[in-house]
């Protein structure tokens, strides 16, 4: 999805990527250090340490051995066993969003890597990189639809179910609204290029496709780096870490 428009150049994109990653990594460090304000044991003194948080987490995660750790990662983090036990609908929603988001994020990173190869013709692989990028089109669409399904269920629950709606805060609305908006803008940018998966040329408008792609990218990066580590959306990181530390709560 090309977004080199409005004066945005390849070099500028690389520079912004580095800055965004730095902000994100600092955000994670900041949270780990905040969690380090707790103690390392029931009677232990306050340590206030980033490293001791990590040490405590590793200790908790592996307390019952490697097998239990792996079982927790598979059953609770990757398959969301506890969510399935409570609500199959929520499980479908979470699985769709989780895998949709993860796959799209990973493929976006990979696409950027291919962009770099193509731009500098590293090892003379520019052509091959371009071909691989073309091949990524279908998986991007599939995982995009997966994320769209999850985001649609999430928005629908918040609107249609009274109990859920009554206890929805601005935070909840913002996060789910943002994910939904990012997904939709991504799709719309793709549809505007024409010859799209399932849609064909229904929304074809190639002149403005890069603009929409840019909006999509800015929104996604904004949520990823500028909002996620600095707000309660850190749960995206903290929840799997909690599940592992508590051996799935089982």
């Amino acid at each position: 999805m090309a977004f080199y428009t409005l004066g945005l150049t390849f070099n500028l994109v690389i520079l912004l990527t580095v800055i965004i990653l730095a902000v994100w990594i600092y955000g994670i460090y900041f949270n780990f250090k905040k969690w380090g304000l707790g103690s390392t044991g029931y009677h232990d003194q306050l340590r206030n340490s980033f490293w001791l948080f990590l040490a405590t987490w590793v200790h908790e995660a592996f307390k019952d051995g490697l097998w239990v750790f792996l079982r927790t990662v598979v059953l609770d983090v990757l398959l969301l066993r506890r969510t399935l036990a409570r609500s199959p609908v929520r499980w479908v929603m979470h699985m769709s969003m989780f895998y949709g988001f993860l796959a799209l994020a990973a493929m976006s990173g990979f696409a950027l890597f291919l962009d770099i190869i193509e731009h500098f013709n590293l090892a003379g692989l520019a052509h091959e990189a371009e071909m691989v990028k073309e091949m990524l089109g279908l998986p991007f669409d599939v995982f995009g639809y997966l994320l769209l399904i999850g985001a649609t269920i999430a928005v629908s629950r918040r609107i249609l179910l009274k109990f859920v709606r009554d206890n929805t805060t601005a935070y909840d609305a913002f996060l789910i609204g943002a994910v939904f908006l990012i997904t939709i803008t991504g799709f719309y940018a793709e549809w505007m290029r024409g010859n799209s998966f399932l849609i064909g040329n229904l929304f074809e408008y190639p002149v403005y496709a890069p603009h929409f792609a840019l909006i999509h990218t800015v929104l996604a990066i904004g949520l990823f780096a500028l909002v996620l580590p600095w707000s309660k959306y850190i749960h995206v990181i903290a929840t799997p870490m909690t599940l592992i530390a508590n051996r799935g709560g089982e």
């Binding site: 949270n31 905040k34 969690w35 380090g36 304000l37 707790g38 103690s39 390392t40 044991g41 029931y42 340590r47 001791l52 948080f53 405590t56 987490w57 908790e60 969510t83 929520r90 109990f163 859920v164 206890n167 805060t169 935070y171 909840d172 309660k232 850190i234 749960h235 903290a238 929840t239 870490m241 909690t242 599940l243 530390a245 508590n246």
Partner: peptide, 15 residues
């Protein structure tokens, strides 16, 4: 515990 401070942030507000 420091992992309990993490747990507070781990709440995903599923209700």
């Amino acid at each position: 515990l420091s992992t309990q401070l993490m747990e507070v942030d781990g709440c995903n507000r599923c209700q």
